[in-house]
Nucleic acid binder design. Structure first.
Lengths: 159, 159
DNA sequence: AGTTGACTTCAAGTTGACTTCAAGTTGACT
DNA sequence: AGTCAACTTGAAGTCAACTTGAAGTCAACT
């Protein structure tokens, strides 16, 4: 990092918290841009860190990489994105999060009414409805965040 | 379905809303039990439908099949599970759902404060924190339900 | 100049939850 | 007895998002 302020893939990885392999993968997908040294090594601009921050945020919220790509492509190509650009971009996530929250709340409320009866009827129980039927279409079936999936109390009482 | 009230894989699939391949897969995993005809075809008891309802509910809530298996294995092996058994089993899900909801709410609140500043700083912005750091460990990174993932407004404003 | 850690590419492997396929049976009905 | 939809198995394919491995190259430092 002597000559300019360009960063190697290792530095980018360390600073962003992504694995090097992920950074290379993202570059391959076109999510990140890199120049190359004469020897063929990647050099990233500092602004790449902001892109990666955006990517992580988006992934935290649940966007696929395809969606992340689309979002990044909607940034102004010819000037450095401003704060406002980034803010604009993340504004649409709010509704998305609210949708997820609503879905889970609906699921929990359905569960509450199920606990009372223990039915789990395919016909009547809202929590065990096949995904394609009636009321879960708005709320949407809720697949658990991976973090929470592995760690717990599968169906058994906590105590 | 003449002779007894045993159901074929096709009937089970139709009535449960699962694909036949999924039903066979679940049987292979031991989530479902089936007797066989002399010719080797599967025959399921009617109670299998309730198990499948449970499986769907659990999957809706986000349990992995491993977790579903563990939950089902905790059912009394020697008698037909009662309503109370099923209710007991699903009771533990409530906390899980609440955890998910809390995680998303925290994420949304973080996003709200981010939108104001547009920073997305790796250091300071809670929404773009690497998954392994500080505050997201409780809440957990939230990966979006698949349903919601594909269908939307990726990072762009709704209007 | 030599060392050595960091880098390169490309292919293949991983995970979970299934689905698809091919080729061959079975069983309910006529 | 014949028909044919529905069934069987096992292997392989799918998807996303990476990771891993092998075999080789680069660059910073001494």
């Amino acid at each position: 990092m002597r000559s300019t302020d360009l960063l190697t893939v290792g530095e980018i990885a360390r600073r962003s918290g992504f694995a090097e392999s992920a950074v290379r993968y993202y570059e391959g997908l076109g999510l990140l841009a890199a120049t190359r040294t004469s020897g063929g090594q990647r050099r990233f601009e500092r602004s790449t860190l902001r892109r990666l921050a955006f990517i992580r945020a988006a992934r935290n919220i649940g966007l696929s990489l395809d969606e992340v790509a689309a979002a990044l492509n909607s940034l102004p190509a010819k000037r450095t994105p401003t704060r406002a650009d980034w803010a604009q971009l993340s504004l649409g996530w709010r509704q998305r999060l609210n949708d997820q929250i609503d879905a889970l709340v609906a699921l929990r409320d359905g569960l509450d009414s199920c606990i009372g009866c223990g039915c789990l009827s395919l016909d009547r129980c809202s929590i065990s409805n096949p995904a394609d039927t009636a009321r879960l279409d708005g709320p949407g079936a809720a697949y658990l965040p991976k973090k929470l999936q592995s760690s717990s109390n599968a169906g058994t009482l906590p105590a």
